[in-house]
């Protein structure tokens, strides 16, 4: 890809970890998950939807609709989003005010060797979202701008879509030290405690 402004994923995540209060987080596969765990060390309020490309924002939408008092952040890889761009239509129509969909745009399949996805250099994720009917769209490619603006964006409770233009990096974390079933139980137990929900029945399922 030609010259473009971009930010390191770890720096973006550090900034977001600083601003995070009680948000529930859903992460897409690979480095979106591994780097979030490395920066947040969160094994309860984050659901690492590993290896389910194109599904994270839909999982997050279901969660946001089900726990409307929670704020839900979805960290979606751009390679994942292009596998299911139609998800943006469902998000735009539902538009739950407690959902923020971040697109981590490194323009490559970061967790599987860094090859670019098809037409990666030219796809424009803001325009894609707007074309799908999403009104509140932001994009950042500079850490100073992100630091200056992101708090103001969070202050307004509306469905929001944010593109983070990222540098293409190697050696990022992609591992989560939990089995997926344990992740589910820890996350759901957290939702039950934090938001007063009963998810599992008295037999524990």
């Amino acid at each position: 890809m030609s010259e473009r402004n971009a930010m390191p994923l770890a720096e973006c995540y550090r900034q977001l970890v600083e601003l995070r209060r009680d948000e529930l987080v859903v992460t897409s596969a690979g480095t979106a998950s591994g780097e979030w765990y490395a920066r947040s060390i969160d094994l309860d309020a984050s659901f690492y939807l590993q290896a389910s490309m194109g599904m994270a924002s839909m999982f997050g939408l279901g969660l946001a609709i089900s726990v409307p008092e929670a704020r839900v952040w979805v960290f979606d890889g751009d390679g994942a989003l292009v596998m299911n761009p139609g998800a943006l239509l469902t998000e735009a129509e539902a538009a739950p005010p407690n959902l923020i969909h971040f697109v981590l745009a490194n323009r490559a399949y970061g967790a599987t060797g860094g090859l670019p996805y098809v037409n990666a250099a030219r796809v424009e994720f803001q325009g894609l979202a707007r074309a799908c009917g999403i009104d509140r769209v932001y994009a950042f490619d500079d850490m100073a701008d992100l630091r200056a603006e992101i708090g103001k964006i969070f202050a307004e409770r509306r469905y929001t879509y944010i593109v983070l233009e990222l540098t293409a990096e190697h050696g990022l974390h992609s591992e989560i030290p939990l089995d997926s079933v344990e992740q589910k139980f820890r996350f759901v137990r957290h939702v039950e405690r934090a938001f007063g929900r009963t998810v599992f029945n008295r037999w524990g399922y």
């Binding site: 939408l61 726990v67 139609g86 469902t90």
Partner: peptide, 26 residues
């Protein structure tokens, strides 16, 4: 019912799985 329209059937599976984790049955 809350009814949501999806553009791909896999989205419906993911959406219902997320709803399950929030205490709803989809």
């Amino acid at each position: 019912f809350t009814h949501l329209r999806v553009a791909r059937e896999e989205s419906a599976i993911a959406l219902c799985a997320g709803a399950f984790c929030g205490g709803r049955t989809g």
